[in-house]
Design a binder for these strands. Structure first.
Length: 620
DNA sequence: GAGTTTGAAACT
DNA sequence: CAGTTTCAAACTC
């Protein structure tokens, strides 16, 4: 029926596209099946035979409906899938279809392995090396281990990296389809586990080369169900960053209920990661949709247009999207050209000449992606063939600045620091701000020189800009909003400082700290900052203004322009955040993770889990 | 398209 | 830590 294996793969994949509503359940189930020991060969054989026997289209259409309904029920039931409740027919269909999908997925993996640029390659490569190459354990035990002990840090980094791409435009819809919890509800990282299980049990390809492959196929469809995400997630077709996004990246509207209840078709912007490849898909959700709330924007063009994509910014709000259009109309021809290139080919590309694309000057490198042919860079080393070099450089940079590759724009409510948890993804983000703030002197924050302006966020207290006229306003922040405001209202500033101190002294907060602070290298934690009032505090990274310091030295309020303040410095950040948090209750999870490198460690991260537990305890 | 301006990143 | 240099994007002509 299918002829060559290639044709079969295509057909299966195409069917998978059409059969998206089935995917989440089926793939989740497949993951479980595989985890339970089913051999890939048997599954593949079974699939192939089944496929040959059946009328694929009829099967898919009818089952899509069934599964769509089932999936909806599952969503309503809190993504707790009970196989017993599924009809036997549905289950049979699921098996059949899921296996087709898997087969197509696996086969395509080899094809997609070649060539196309990918997001998160660095992280994926590292994660791969870390979890696979350096581990001879069985796939299952390996993945389990990675998930439980190391994966948090890996995922954290992946998330960070992903966030840097999705940044403040991250799609909110991803959140809702979180049916990864269908099968593995115990941990936010379980989806990753399942992904690995599926991957490892079906192919020997490295994780990074497989994850997301299916989406490459899926996303070619212009009409997809939202279940795509469920599918990908449940069995690992989502790239890890995507999974992370689901748990809350910057500006992700994480109101899952709104998505679940939305029956409106919406755009889904999919960012696919598959080893050395990357692509984004802009898809239309026709049914059962998680509707984009307010942070959607076509990040990059679909791989339909160009599978070779560059770093992308995603997750822009609808209003921002409109602004972009208006802005585009006003661009000079040159800028328009650049923007056109950005829009038409997916994303921006770099033009580096001297940095070899191995410094943060390079947008591609900074975004965590390899350069592509369409980049105009010279002597570029930011390519897969120099992976080792790239990773080394990245490590060096991160050693210097652990947050170098984290998103520049974060949400006030959901700080995009590498430490996110499943709790955070349930938080609806408020407004975004530039994490480190700008330092503009002449642009008045009215041009794209200004990173705040460029990110379309208002300047915040973290900024040290002069003559700020940021048209995006001032990012709402707790009372002490901006340096300028402080300057104008020193009394208010003092009050807030007092309030912050009072909150810091709250037992609930201080109790969480002692163990965590011990994880932070002493060199980064000057005692004067760690224990300003005789207590131990664990503070997340941040770059908000030194309230306390400013209090004692008002003259520094506005003109704190030291480059060092702009660079992320753990000690400073910690003290700043502490001071900035009037409640003193900013998630303790943050500082846990801040003790971990924002990059997957080269050695097993023994404390990852411990840190998580401590975080949970802190929250309690 | 060339040249200038700008501010982040990197360096000393 | 602060000042300087380098860099590439943004911008102007």
């Amino acid at each position: 029926m299918f002829g060559s294996p290639e044709n079969e793969a295509v057909l299966l994949s195409d069917q998978a596209e059409k059969n998206l509503p089935l995917s989440s359940l089926e793939m989740s189930q497949a993951a479980i099946n595989q985890r339970d020991g089913k051999k890939t060969e048997e599954l593949s054989r079974f699939i192939f035979e089944k496929v040959k026997e059946s009328d694929v289209n009829a099967c898919l259409v009818s089952r899509a409906q069934n599964c769509g309904e089932n999936a909806a029920k599952l969503h309503r039931a809190g993504c707790q899938y009970d196989e017993k409740n599924a009809s036997s027919q549905s289950r049979e269909d699921s098996n059949e279809c899921k296996q087709r999908v898997q087969k197509g997925f696996v086969k395509e993996g080899g094809q997609n392995e070649r060539g196309i640029r990918r997001h998160l390659q660095f992280e994926a490569a590292k994660a791969y090396k870390f979890t696979i190459l350096g581990n001879s354990e069985s796939p299952n035990s390996l993945t389990h281990d990675a998930t439980n002990s190391r994966s948090p840090s890996i995922l954290t980094n992946l998330k960070s990296l992903a966030s840097s791409h999705f940044d403040n435009r991250a799609s909110s819809s991803l959140q809702d389809v979180s049916c990864d919890t269908l099968q593995f509800p115990s941990s936010p990282y379980e989806s990753f586990t399942s992904a690995q299980i599926g991957v490892n049990s079906t192919t020997s390809a490295p994780i990074h080369s497989v994850i997301g492959l299916h989406l490459n196929r899926i996303s070619r469809s212009t009409s997809l169900s939202s279940d795509i995400f469920s599918s990908k997630k449940s069995i690992g077709y989502l790239s890890m960053p995507e999974q992370m996004l689901e748990h809350g990246s910057n500006n992700i509207a994480t109101n899952s209920s709104s998505i679940l209840t939305s029956a409106v078709s919406g755009k889904i912007y999919v960012h696919v990661a598959s080893g050395q490849q990357e692509s984004q898909a802009v898809t239309e959700a026709n049914s059962f949709t998680f509707h984009s709330t307010d942070t959607m924007k076509p990040p990059c063009h679909s791989m339909l247009v160009d599978q070779e994509t560059a770093p992308c910014e995603v997750g822009m709000s609808a209003s921002q999207e409109t602004d972009e259009v208006e802005e585009l109309n006003q661009l000079s021809p040159k800028r328009k050209r650049r923007r056109d290139a950005y829009m038409s080919e997916g994303c921006k590309r770099c033009n580096c000449r001297r940095s070899k694309c191995l410094k943060l000057y390079c947008e591609c490198f900074a975004a965590g992606v390899y350069c592509v042919d369409s980049c105009a860079c010279v002597n570029c080393y930011n390519k897969p063939e120099f992976e080792d070099t790239v990773l080394d450089i990245r490590q060096q940079i991160e050693a210097r600045n652990p947050l170098a590759f984290t998103p520049k724009v974060v949400d006030n409510a959901i700080d995009s620091s590498p430490n996110f948890t499943e709790e955070q993804d349930l938080t609806t983000p408020s407004s975004a701000r530039h994490k480190r703030g700008c330092n503009c002197k002449k642009s008045k924050c009215l041009k794209r020189y200004c990173e705040c302006f460029q990110a379309k966020v208002g300047c915040s207290s973290a900024c040290r800009c002069e003559g700020c006229k940021n048209t995006f306003g001032v990012t709402p922040e707790p009372v002490y909003n901006r340096a300028k405001k402080w300057e104008a209202h020193p009394a208010e500033k003092l009050d807030n400082v007092k309030g912050a101190i009072a909150c810091i002294k709250a037992p609930a907060f201080s109790s969480a700290s002692s163990s965590n602070s011990a994880k932070i290298p002493q060199a980064q934690l000057p005692s004067s900052q760690l224990q300003p009032s005789g207590a131990h505090y664990d503070i997340p990274y941040d770059d908000t203004p030194e309230i306390l310091e400013e209090t004692s030295n008002p003259t520094k309020v506005v003109r704190a322009s030291s480059p060092n303040q702009k660079r992320v410095s753990p000690p400073q950040s910690r003290s700043r955040l502490r001071e900035r948090s009037p409640t003193g209750l900013r998630s303790g999870r943050k500082f846990i993770l801040q003790a971990m490198p924002s990059f997957p460690p080269l050695t097993p991260h023994r404390n990852s889990k411990e840190g998580t537990n401590e975080i949970e305890n802190d929250d309690k």
